[in-house]
């Protein structure tokens, strides 16, 4: 880092609004040495707390890659990701894990849960990782499961739950850590219409009532229809970014 970079960094830091994710010239090239795949091309996006956003686009357009970058699960080839003015690109892994634990919740497409834990344990485990007091952990896990409509399934294991119920447990788990952002990669991909609608209703309600931020990737029209902001990607680049 040169001296001017440091100054820039500090200025940005001061200017940074709390609760903002921004990507700067984000590019990702897979297999740069063999058959290079440009999964992301120079992406510049800002996400704010309280958003309910869907990233859409055809298969292979880079949606998953983008979400992984934002969540710090993958490293960009160029550019950077900042959350609240803190650059997570290039952060040491153990620090990044802590950072993710406090700031970002994940809901993946499927098989999200720890198979040997019950719904209740899956939700409380993440709070255990955050070292929260036991009392609070128990109360919050129960509250959240109730909120996602699984009051009578506390002690069911994932394999005893339907796909929709599993996704709802995953959402409850993502909420448990009280993150600023919840990243959900195709959360409805494996769900029938009724379950998908239920899940979306629930997430919408959380967004409305508790200002929880959701960023989805999806090519599911049901999800796109509900979004307040729709970002369209084509071939790794942002084609459009509309707020309704």
């Amino acid at each position: 880092m040169s001296e001017s970079d440091v100054i820039d960094y500090e200025i940005e830091n001061n200017e940074a609004k709390m609760g903002i994710i921004s990507t700067k010239n984000l590019s990702k090239i897979y297999n740069p040495d063999t058959i290079p795949v440009h999964a992301l091309r120079n992406v510049n996006l800002d996400f704010e707390v309280g958003e309910f956003t869907t990233v859409k686009g055809p298969s292979g357009s880079g949606k998953t890659t983008l979400l992984n970058m934002i969540g710090g699960l993958d490293k960009p080839t160029e550019g950077s990701v900042e959350i609240d003015g803190i650059q997570i690109t290039g952060m040491k892994e153990s620090k990044l894990i802590d950072f993710r634990l406090q700031n970002i919740g994940f809901v993946f497409q499927s098989y999200n849960l720890i198979p040997v834990f019950t719904a209740y344990e899956n939700v409380s485990f993440i709070m255990l990782l955050q070292k929260r007091p036991k009392k609070e952990m128990e109360m919050r896990a129960k509250e959240l499961l109730e909120a996602v409509g699984l009051k009578d399934k506390y002690h069911s294991r994932p394999k005893e739950l339907s796909g929709g119920e599993q996704q709802r447990v995953a959402v409850a788990r993502a909420l448990a850590s009280q993150p600023k952002f919840i990243l959900a990669d195709e959360p409805t991909a494996n769900l029938d219409t009724k379950s998908a609608m239920n899940l979306l209703d629930m997430m919408e309600k959380m967004n409305r009532e508790e200002n929880v931020t959701f960023i989805f990737s999806s090519h599911d029209q049901r999800v796109i229809d509900r979004a307040k902001r729709v970002i369209t990607m084509v071939d790794g680049a942002i084609e459009s970014d509309e707020t309704r």
Binding site: G71, E93, I97, R100, F108, L113, I114, L129, R173, S177
Partner: peptide, 14 residues
Amino acid sequence: LREFGILLSVGMYR
């Protein structure tokens, strides 16, 4: 592996 991946991404130390 997938389960390990999930545990690592939700915030468990390696």
